[in-house]
Design a protein around this nucleic acid. Structure first.
Lengths: 343, 343
DNA sequence: AGTAAATAGTTAACCGTTTAACTGGAGAGA
DNA sequence: TCTCTCCAGTTAAACGGTTAACTATTTACT
């Protein structure tokens, strides 16, 4: 079945050499219009499709772009779970990549060594790193000549790689200022990990700045870390706040997921939102507008982030762009029903 | 930089032929222990990594598995949006695939022709189809020798392909029976599209069966279709119910996403859930337990579904068995706070 | 001792393209 | 007429592996 037809079959059928067929198919002007015509009809008649594996080997270019996720445990589940964020990003990336004739290969990074190996052995043309990885991975990656685009990661690597992010600091500032303007003073900041998550760190800086501007002295007793950005962690933290931190009346959570978990815990214990607590999230995932009450949050356009990241990597691959791209996308405060004037 | 070392470099360094190196690396017992040792140290010393593109070309096997999403419009966004479902599935698939040394290539299906082309030209070893595609795609796919696993799709193709699904019919039955047992008689069924979505059709059959068993005559006036399973569509439908179908007191929605959208609309108009309306969803996405009230739903283990699907395709590729696999995974009724006895 | 079989290698063709280098002929310029 | 360039092709060597077929020793068996 499926007698695979090769470029030589086409060549024979058109009465030329394989090279001529290749030249025509690659748009290299080395063949007369007349034979070009003959070759193209042969291609049509035989229904020829070039074998991309062979092309990859020959051209030393795979037309594949890799997407790396940080693996916290053995499967992607932990980070993808509850995370509409990544789906949306993948959508944006896939959209651009397909349009440009590339394929998208995804992988969770196991070890830095495996990761490097993967890129080299597969001839991956370019790479997108989504999120934060161990530092030594970034160090090792410098050895690669393939373009790499980092999405949401440590600023310290900006001079080595392309970098796409949103204005996390300003987002933190907007969220906090909103709460301050509503009269809140005891504002908790809840995030994943201030050291391991560069994004959270930036949001914290915005938070701190807003407080200072309002004459409030930031205190570590208002800062809470959880080990993963999930509903469950938010929920547990909500309960903790109720028990041990009764002075807190407002929460800025570094993700909507956390915010919604917190909200759930508070509501379960009979607290009214926004009357008793004001809550702000970050990301504007779809569910945030459908929660009760709907969640005030900082919106970022994640699909677009994926588009920009993918576009960058393709430009770098194709134009051999030498300059590094650093894009910082804007964010927006979306005021809904989870925040209100301090009672 | 990066002088790529080839198998011939290793051979030279170990004082043997390239073939011997290849035999050792492929575990073919054709080399003495002594030279094997020499070859392996040479591999280590030179830090040799086989070029997978070359391996693919030579072995006519890419070690890549493709995942196809149905494209409703031009980007994956529409189907991935609001759909924690696919993330979770991808997690399961990736988990298995990586463990077996395969890579995961994802693509939205544009045209059937493109899809076929993709598989052939890339030498994709096996394929996973997530969801329902145009019928002619399935017809065309039969021409391929590569194993294909369908997840959640038309039963009529079960004799041509491997097939993984959950017991949608029983899920529909469980959900509806639960509502019936609570005293409900006016139970709406809300789904994507009963013809285009085979999954929804099965759930409908379960719904119908439960009604009949309870002596309730199913009526088309209780069946509602939306053109996409999203929060927004649920929300709009919720408003429609309030306006035009005041007799309805219970809703079984074919996805949690729809259910939560409906719930939001009802709540916004001052309706109490579960006092005024009982609502059941399907899928048990994470949100469902964090919504207010938490959503009664039919749980399916999507991660596991991905695991099973990926395992099937790999087994088929590696010829562990030739018979088609048809797996139907179980579902479970999760009773939460969105359903109550009819008042 | 003579033949068969097993062992441990090597050689070279092959997978399906690309592309540098070569070829032969036509047209241009002196 | 002779060279030079251009044109329209072809040839063959890559790309980096795999593997069937072959060779040359040993070992085993009658």
């Amino acid at each position: 079945m499926g007698e695979k037809i090769t470029i030589r079959d086409v060549a024979k059928h058109a009465g030329v050499s394989a090279a001529s067929v290749s030249y025509v198919l690659n748009g290299i002007n080395k063949v007369s219009d007349e034979t070009k015509e003959r070759i193209l009809t042969a291609v049509k008649e035989l229904n020829y499709e070039p074998n991309l594996t062979a092309v990859s080997l020959s051209k030393q270019k795979s037309n594949m772009i890799g997407v790396m996720f940080p693996l916290t445990d053995d499967s992607l589940s932990t980070i993808l779970k509850d995370n509409h964020y990544y789906s949306e990003m993948i959508s944006g990336i896939e959209y651009v990549i397909r349009k440009h004739g590339y394929d998208l290969v995804i992988s969770g990074a196991s070890s830095p060594a495996d990761c490097l190996k993967w890129i080299r052995t597969r001839n991956i043309d370019g790479l997108l790193f989504l999120g934060a990885f161990p530092h030594r991975l970034y160090e090792k990656m410098k050895a690669l000549s393939n373009p790499i685009v980092l999405v949401d990661t440590y600023e310290r690597y900006e001079r080595d790689y392309h970098h796409i992010s949103v204005d996390d600091e300003y987002g933190g500032y907007l969220a906090t200022t909103h709460l301050v303007n509503l009269g809140h003073k005891e504002i908790a900041f809840v995030a994943h990990h201030l050291v391991n998550s560069p994004v959270d760190k930036k949001r914290y800086i915005g938070y701190e700045k807003a407080l200072k501007e309002a004459g409030i002295i930031p205190s570590k007793t208002f800062v809470f870390e959880v080990n993963e950005s999930s509903f469950d962690n938010g929920y547990n933290l909500g309960n903790k706040l109720l028990q041990d931190h009764k002075n807190i009346r407002a929460v800025f959570a570094s993700s909507d997921t956390l915010a919604l978990g917190i909200m759930k815990a508070l509501q379960e214990k009979g607290k009214k939102i926004p009357q008793d607590y004001s809550i702000v999230g970050f990301d504007d995932i779809t569910f945030s507008s459908y929660a009760s009450p709907s969640l005030t949050t900082i919106r970022q356009d994640v699909f677009n982030k994926g588009v920009v990241a993918a576009t960058s990597v393709i430009q770098a691959i194709e134009h051999r762009f030498s300059t590094l791209q650093h894009v910082k996308l804007s964010v927006e405060l979306i005021i809904r029903d989870s925040t209100a004037k301090r009672g």
